[in-house]
Amino acid sequence: MTEWIDVGLVTDIPVQGSRVVAAPAGDIAVFRTADGSVFALRDRCPHKGGPLSEGMVHGHAVTCPLHNWVISLETGQAQGADHGCAGKIPVRIEGERVLLAASALQRYAA
């Protein structure tokens, strides 16, 4: 059974914005899009490690603040001509709360 970790309220995340969850294996960026969906990725751009939590969120994608790679929030994959993946963390919403899959947090611990 998946173990889920409660990291706070959906409303803690600004709409079209992101917040960081500090995890032992590295920061996680948790995003909230204009349509109210919530996603989580490792806070490291597959290009040169830019903090995706600082990027601009549009649709279900985020543009990295360092060199403008566009990363899909749904898959973590770089879009367009760029290749690479920021690890995706499963998210569950319970009521107003955001939960992250504990196993995925550990998987990226390596």
């Binding site: 970790i5 990291v7 706070g8 803690d12 995340i13 600004p14 917040r19 960081v20 969850v21 500090a22 995890a23 032992p24 920061d27 948790v30 947090l105």
Partner: peptide
């Protein structure tokens, strides 16, 4: 203020 503080700190939890 939300820009400058993590939403949650799981390091502390651990």
């Amino acid at each position: 203020a939300h820009e400058f503080t993590p939403m949650a700190n799981l390091k502390l939890l651990e």
